[in-house]
Simulated scan of single mutants.
Amino acid sequence: MGAQWKTKHKMDAANARGRIFTKLAKEIMVAARNGADPSMNAKLRAAVEAAKKASMPKDTLERAIKKGAGLLDGPVNYETVVYEGFAPHQVPVIVECLTDNKNRSAQSMRILFRKGQLGSSGSVSWDFKHLGQIEAVPTSADADLELAAIEAGAQDFEQGEDGEVIFLTESTDLDAVAKALPDFGYEVHSAKLVYRANNPVSLDDAARAEVEAFLDAIDNDDDVQNVYVGLA
């Protein structure tokens, strides 16, 4: 969920990797403000796991941790800002920014939402669930998916496209479930809080293409960290 509108091979691979590493580094820096030891910092641990999955170079990862913890180049001043509104055809959108300049982000969102409608806080989030999402893969052929979900404390699960399993949790249970899953035969690749639409909108091809162009423009903004959309 989130960036599911993206078409494969749309972006040059090197540019795409660079953007992914930049976003992951920002998440690591913000998480590391609460401690540079992943074993003692659940948010940092999840960010580090996501960076390793994306094959972020070790020196880049370690530098982000040190910078976020204030051990390098002074303090990090990124803040999370959430915007809500509608893409064309009244498709609900939630945008999470991680920014060091809220005025710049606000101006960018006002411009980017001109082809849609920028709303106030709560204008669309009421129609989304805020929950934990864990991506994991079985470590053995006899791993019991349903048992793992129940015993680890997940609320639900679904099969991914590439053999992975998506475990869904209450937002407060994300770290506990992620820690428990390895005991039941699952290796965790990522664990994060996400928004999922309750009533995603279905569109014809022409309208969907218009919405996808709108979402791509938002996602390409340097301050944007995550985009969640109610699009079926």
Rank of each mutant, 00 (worst) to 15 (best):
Q4C: 05
A14Y: 09
N15R: 10
R19D: 13
I20T: 14
A31I: 09
G35A: 12
G35N: 11
P38E: 07
M40A: 15
M40G: 10
N41E: 05
N41C: 09
A42R: 15
L44H: 05
V48D: 12
V48Y: 02
E49L: 14
A50Y: 00
A51N: 04
S55R: 09
P57N: 11
P57H: 09
D59Q: 11
T60F: 11
E62M: 12
A69E: 06
A69I: 04
G70K: 11
G74N: 13
V76R: 14
V76K: 11
Y78N: 12
V81P: 01
V81L: 15
E84I: 06
V93R: 00
T99V: 10
D100E: 15
D100W: 07
D100T: 12
N103S: 15
A106Q: 13
S108F: 02
I111M: 06
G119D: 07
S121H: 14
S123E: 13
W126A: 12
F128K: 03
F128S: 07
K129G: 01
H130I: 09
Q133K: 14
E135D: 08
V137S: 07
D142W: 04
L145D: 04
E146R: 14
L147F: 13
L147Y: 14
E151T: 08
Q155L: 12
D156H: 13
D156K: 14
F157M: 06
Q159W: 09
G160N: 06
E161W: 04
D162P: 00
G163R: 07
E164W: 03
I166M: 11
T169V: 06
E170G: 11
S171V: 13
S171K: 15
D173Y: 06
L174C: 10
A178N: 07
L181K: 07
D183E: 15
D183V: 01
F184H: 15
G185I: 03
G185T: 07
G185L: 05
Y186G: 03
A191F: 03
L193M: 14
N198R: 13
N198F: 02
P200M: 08
D204P: 00
A209Q: 09
F214Q: 00
L215N: 04
A217S: 14
I218R: 00
D219S: 15
D219G: 08
D219N: 15
D221I: 03
D223R: 02
V227G: 03
V227K: 04
G230S: 06
L231G: 01
